[in-house]
Each structure stands twice: as structure tokens, then as C-alpha cells.
Design a protein around this nucleic acid. Structure first.
Length: 477
DNA sequence: CCTGGAGTTGTCCTA
DNA sequence: TTAGGACAACTCCAG
């Protein structure tokens, strides 16, 4: 850069933080004033437009980052390529910094933008700000990508004594430069009907809240994590997923903070299990990178002829938490109410949709995409392919979750179901997960009238299980 | 190239 | 009551 005092641009995307943000740090170290920029570019991501819950989170997160930046953020809407060119020209910037993103359309678009800017003599500096290890660096010795988690994790990214980088400090005394743009509200991220107010009751987006969440988890959730993470009414899961998705906290920071607890008495297994969840995040991103069709195409081709049913009515019931299976309905209502669902329950509702209802995994994937605050292309696609059994390292087809067994096992006292299904609040625990089997007297005593204030099961477990097993086993032939 | 062990999270039946 | 095996075969991966 030749011109003294010419600004540099930092293009923020899924790295909405100042600590351990390599692009921001590098820009800061140039000594030039920084134009912090966010572009809402919805033109190039095909059918994966930001979901409703994600839009709310993004709005909140940007608002907080803008505050950290003393209100100097430059917001823009439109084509990223065009806007970058314009902002760079208008501001007189000679360099731009960003952290890389991994959605297939972004990889393509970013490469194009980088080339175009460099052709104009602009310095472009890009960094890894979102992953412990980037997907192109973790390959088998024959140069091909891993398809099995355990090998990927143990021999791949953590192989040969590899350790994720230590997090870097937040730059002090940022020198910021204003550039005219739109306001945050102009991005129109919030819905017109204020349904997002309920999300705000359960979540606090932003970097400060993300770090606070991490600390609460380390203090209260990590102990007994390995066991406790399976029980949806307990507070053992980290709930860091949306913070990680939007880059409000870096995986490096989370990794090293958790690793420090390894020495605590009896905590080693818990820490290891938690770290492996970060490993799954890496694995998902690796799969998406190497198999960009992952969100829409069965990784195992033989699934292309699977006889998915078409049944709008059942889909609706599933979405609304009206299937008549309490643990499934509680999960779907948790999702609608809070923008989140406990991991074990995600598997239960997923298995139910794909196996018991035999509806296409894309339908579940789409619904999660729209309603989850942690909606993430890599994690969402990998998860649905796994539960449908068509992905890499997938669940065997005969692994069909029984919602009653799962409910009794992992929500034995029914606390979770009662929390999200008030109409079953008074059901005795013996019939809470299978109210259709309760004697009339018990139902009446609990104020439950099946078919009136809580539905009868929409499918029979035994029959639908057999139907799925048959369909899945026929695929092999 | 060959070989053998293994693969996140289940369920159901039988003895 | 509980523990073990069947469920299916295939692909992946390391040596």
C-alpha cells in the first residue's frame, strides 16, 4: 500500500467478532484505518436463502458488532462483487481483508471477486477464521478426503500431533474509518410479524454473550457432559452452535478453553467428548467442501430410487409438533419456540420423519434451515444425510429410533416433554410418552382428551417401522 | 494390491 | 430382569 492514511476494508461475513479474527488483526497491523463492511448478498446462494431464525440472529449480532465498532459499520445490500468494487473505489482503499467461507457458492464467488480485485491492483488477503483446520488440509495419505469420522478426526485433522492454533488477542485501539452506507434496518433482516420476540427470550447473540455462554458451559455443563448431553432436560450441552456459526467466537478459542479443563478431576472423558463434537463440525465442513452436492444429493447413489412418500398433511403435523408422539412433538415445539432443538431430540424427530413417516430428508432439512438459529449448511446437510442413512458414515438403515423408548430412556421424568407440551403436564410419567395407551381414567384425571387437546399418533410405530425396514432393505438389491 | 478390522448416538427377541 | 445376538452388506481405511 502506497498511500499513507488510505483505509483498508475488512469484509465481515461469518466472523462477527473482534477476538481471534485473523482478517481483522492483519488489517489492524497494517496501521491503516479500517472500513468495517457487511454486505447482505442474497442473489447468489440459490435455494439456500437465509432462514427466518438466522436472519434474526444476524440482525442482533451485527447490531452488537456495530456497537463494538462505535457505530462505524458500513452496511450494504446487493451483489458483493459490485459493492466491494464501489466501496473500494469511493474510499480509496488499496487493500481488503476477509476470512474465508465454505458454502459452495461462496467459494466460487469469492474466487471470482478476488481475481477481479487483484486485476485492478487491489491487495486481497484472505484467512481461515472459522475452522480449526481447513478442509483442503485434511486428506488421507492418498490425497483423497475422509468419509469416516473417526479416521478423519484421529488420523486426519489431529494426526501427527496436530493441534489447532492458539486464539489471537483482539486488536486494541482499532482505528476505524466511516464509509457511507445503509443502516442495519435497511437490510430488512427482521420479520414484519414480530415472532422473533420469543427467540430473544432464549438467546443473546453477539461476541460478548458467546464468550459468556462458553464460560457458563465450562463451569456448569462440561462436568458430566459425556453422559448428560443425552438428556434434553439437562443443561449439559454447550449451546454454542449459533455463536460458532456466525463466528461470534472462534473454534480455536472454544477448543483451547475446553482443553484447559482436561486436567480437572474426572473430566477427561467429558472434555474429549466435547472436543469430538467440534471435530464433527470440522468433518461436516470437510464433507461439504469435497462433496458440494451434499445439501441436495444422496451421497450414496443407491438412495436415488428410494420410494419417499408424499404426504403434505403428515409433514405439517410433524412441523407443528402434532404427531401424537410426545418426545417428537416436544422437540418440534422447542424448535418453533426457541429456534433450537437438543441434539438427541434432533435425531429422534429426524428418524421419525425419514423412517416412520418415510418423508424425504430434504423436507426436514428445509424446515430446520428456516427455523434453527444455528442453521448451517454443512452441519445440517451432514446431519440429515446421516439420519436418512444415505450419507458418509451413515446410520445403518435398521437403526430406527423408537420415540417411546427414547422418551422413557432420555426423558424419564418427563421434564422436557412437560416443558414444551403443556397439555400433557399432568399426565403421570408412566403414560407421558405413550398417552394413547393410558386408561380412560388416567387421561381424564390429567385433563387429556385424545383427538381433542392432544392428537392420536399419526402412524403406528410397529407398522411404519416394518414399512421402512422393507423399503430400505430393498435398496440393497 | 491385498487383508482384515471397523464403522457417533438402536431395537427387538430370545434365552 | 438382563445380556447377547441378529439385523445386511458394504465401504472405508491403515498397514
Amino acid at each position: 500500500m502506497t498511500t499513507i492514511n488510505s483505509p483498508v476494508v475488512v469484509w465481515f461475513r461469518q466472523d462477527l467478532r473482534i477476538k481471534d479474527n485473523p482478517a481483522l488483526l492483519a488489517a489492524h497491523q497494517t496501521g491503516h484505518p479500517i472500513v468495517p463492511l457487511f454486505i447482505l448478498d442474497e442473489g447468489n446462494n440459490g435455494e439456500w436463502k437465509l432462514g427466518g431464525a438466522s436472519r434474526w440472529w444476524l440482525h442482533e449480532s451485527l447490531q452488537r458488532l456495530n456497537k463494538t465498532m462505535k457505530g462505524k459499520f458500513c452496511f450494504q445490500t446487493g451483489s458483493a462483487g459490485k459493492i466491494l468494487k464501489r466501496v473500494i473505489k469511493e474510499s480509496g482503499a488499496e487493500a481488503i481483508f476477509w476470512n474465508r467461507c465454505y458454502e459452495p457458492w461462496r467459494i466460487v464467488d469469492d474466487a471470482r471477486i478476488q481475481q477481479a480485485l487483484q486485476a485492478k491492483g487491489i491487495e486481497v488477503h484472505t484467512f481461515n477464521g472459522s475452522l480449526l483446520f481447513e478442509p483442503q488440509t485434511t486428506l488421507k495419505s492418498d490425497g483423497t478426503p475422509y468419509k469416516v469420522f473417526t479416521s478423519f478426526y484421529k488420523n486426519g485433522c489431529l494426526g501427527k500431533g496436530n493441534e489447532p492454533p492458539q486464539p489471537q488477542k483482539a486488536p486494541k485501539d482499532l482505528s476505524l474509518s466511516t464509509h457511507t452506507g445503509e443502516t442495519l434496518n435497511d437490510l430488512n433482516l427482521l420479520p414484519t410479524i414480530p415472532w422473533h420476540k420469543k427467540l430473544a427470550k432464549h438467546w443473546k447473540p453477539g461476541e460478548i454473550a458467546a464468550r459468556a455462554r462458553l464460560n457458563v458451559f465450562l463451569k456448569r455443563g462440561l462436568n458430566q457432559y459425556k453422559e448428560g448431553r443425552n438428556y434434553p432436560s439437562r443443561n449439559n450441552t454447550s449451546r454454542l452452535s449459533p455463536h460458532l456459526h456466525f463466528g461470534e467466537i472462534s473454534p480455536n478459542e472454544v477448543w483451547h478453553a475446553a482443553t484447559k479443563r482436561m486436567g480437572a478431576k474426572g473430566c477427561r472423558k467429558d472434555v474429549e467428548t466435547f472436543l469430538s463434537e467440534l471435530g464433527w463440525r470440522e468433518f461436516s465442513h470437510s464433507l461439504l467442501f469435497h462433496f458440494p452436492d451434499l445439501p441436495r444429493k444422496n451421497l450414496q447413489k443407491k438412495f436415488n430410487k428410494f420410494p419417499w412418500r408424499k404426504d403434505q398433511k403428515s409433514l405439517k403435523r410433524w412441523q407443528q409438533g402434532q404427531t401424537g408422539y410426545p418426545i417428537v412433538d416436544a422437540g418440534m415445539r422447542e424448535l418453533w419456540e426457541t429456534g433450537y432443538m437438543h441434539n438427541r431430540v434432533r435425531m429422534i424427530v429426524g428418524s421419525f420423519l425419514v423412517k416412520n413417516l418415510m418423508l424425504h430428508w430434504h423436507l426436514g432439512e428445509d424446515w430446520f434451515w428456516d427455523t434453527l438459529v444455528d442453521a448451517d449448511l454443512a452441519n445440517n446437510s451432514t446431519g440429515w444425510q446421516w439420519i436418512a442413512g444415505c450419507g458418509a458414515d451413515a446410520a445403518p438403515y435398521f437403526r430406527i429410533f423408537n420415540p417411546v423408548t427414547q422418551g422413557k430412556k432420555f426423558d424419564g421424568d418427563g421434564e422436557y416433554v412437560r416443558r414444551f407440551i403443556p397439555e400433557l403436564k399432568k399426565m403421570p410419567v408412566k403414560y407421558l410418552h405413550n398417552p394413547w395407551e393410558a386408561p380412560e381414567k388416567v387421561l381424564a384425571g390429567a385433563g387429556v382428551q385424545l383427538g381433542e387437546n392432544y392428537p392420536f399418533p399419526i402412524v403406528k410405530l410397529g407398522d411404519s417401522r416394518k414399512r421402512a425396514l422393507k423399503a430400505f432393505s430393498e435398496l440393497a438389491k
